[in-house]
């Protein structure tokens, strides 16, 4: 590529406003060549807006955005030939067969299935037995694979995937991420968004995004390191009462439910496990389990969210 800078995607102070809401409020980030970059955040955080601007489907309200050193406003046509985009919603032709869809998108990009077969081979072999089946009749996981094939068929330099694993079962999700990592190894730069925090660990770098603002950009390990506090997992028989009690305790900072445990941080580092148990026993809690745990991305996210509020 004709890259002058080292960055494949460069976003500076991007803003996007719709009629009533500001969806993206001044976001900056950059993605290097060959990186697997994750945009992690809940629904409505602005992930799709950012991706739609990167894929030139939408103009930014303000700010500089370039993909492969092309400006998204001036050179949108050049960007389109070199990116692969997989929208959040399955948007292939349901009334065309698997093979017809793939062939159509290949031809539209001026190539053929055969020419870039190497790139999609790993994925396509899984759906090839169903190549005559209409795309609308495929299962969710199959649809994702087909959509990925269609986004890859013209051998793009950048792959932009908007929540590819939303609504897909756990096994297919795992498979899908394995495919992404293999693609990354082939040198394709990948931007992926997801609301699932556990997927963040698979990215090279992640941007945690909330309400149109990026709270943190770093490698998943660094994000966790930056948590920098002792995190406790607490459990008792009456979990709801436990939340209420913990929140009323003065030395407790944050309480977030995580599955069957509550993750809490304390304002003081002085208390130890036994002291905590005795305080909770005083409040009539039984079956108390308590331990110090490693923070995960979601904990970091929740912490960043509560501090930004």
């Amino acid at each position: 590529m004709q890259n002058q800078s080292n960055y494949i995607v460069e976003v500076t102070d991007l803003k996007k406003s719709y009629e009533k809401v500001d969806a993206v409020k001044g976001v900056s980030f950059s993605v290097s060549k060959g990186e697997l970059f994750g945009l992690i955040g809940p629904d409505g955080a602005g992930k799709t807006s950012i991706f739609r601007i990167l894929t030139t489907l939408m103009f930014p309200t303000d700010g500089q955005v370039s993909v492969l050193d092309f400006d998204v406003i001036k050179d949108y046509k050049k960007i389109r030939s070199n990116i692969g985009y997989m929208p959040q919603r399955f948007s292939l032709y349901q009334d065309l067969s698997v093979e017809e869809n793939l062939a159509f998108f290949a031809r539209i990009f001026g190539t053929t299935i055969e020419e870039n077969y190497d790139l999609i081979k790993d994925i396509y072999v899984q759906i090839e037995p169903f190549k005559d089946r209409l795309a609308g009749k495929l299962s969710g996981g199959m649809k994702q694979k087909l959509a990925l094939c269609c986004a890859l068929i013209h051998s793009p330099d950048v792959l932009i995937l908007d929540e590819p694993t939303t609504g897909v079962d756990a096994v297919s999700r795992k498979e899908f991420w394995e495919m992404l990592i293999r693609l990354k190894d082939k040198g394709i730069t990948i931007l992926v968004s997801t609301p699932y925090m556990d997927e963040a660990n698979l990215c090279d770098r992640v941007a945690l995004i909330q309400n149109g603002e990026i709270m943190s950009i770093d490698t998943p390990e660094k994000v966790i390191e930056n948590f920098g506090r002792k995190l406790w997992a607490v459990k008792s028989d009456k979990i709801y009462q436990l939340i209420k009690d913990l929140k009323s305790l003065e030395f407790v900072d944050t309480v977030f439910p995580f599955g069957e445990f509550l993750h809490i941080t304390l304002k003081t580092e002085d208390l130890n496990q036994d002291e905590l148990i005795s305080i909770l026993t005083e409040n009539n809690h039984k079956g108390i389990q308590i331990q110090v745990i490693e923070a995960n991305i979601e904990d970091c996210f929740m912490q960043l969210m509560s501090t930004s509020e």
Partner: peptide, 13 residues
């Protein structure tokens, strides 16, 4: 409605 126009719009058509 189906969203395929998005996929077409990102192509160089």
């Amino acid at each position: 409605e189906i969203g395929t126009i998005e996929q077409l719009n990102v192509t160089p058509i």
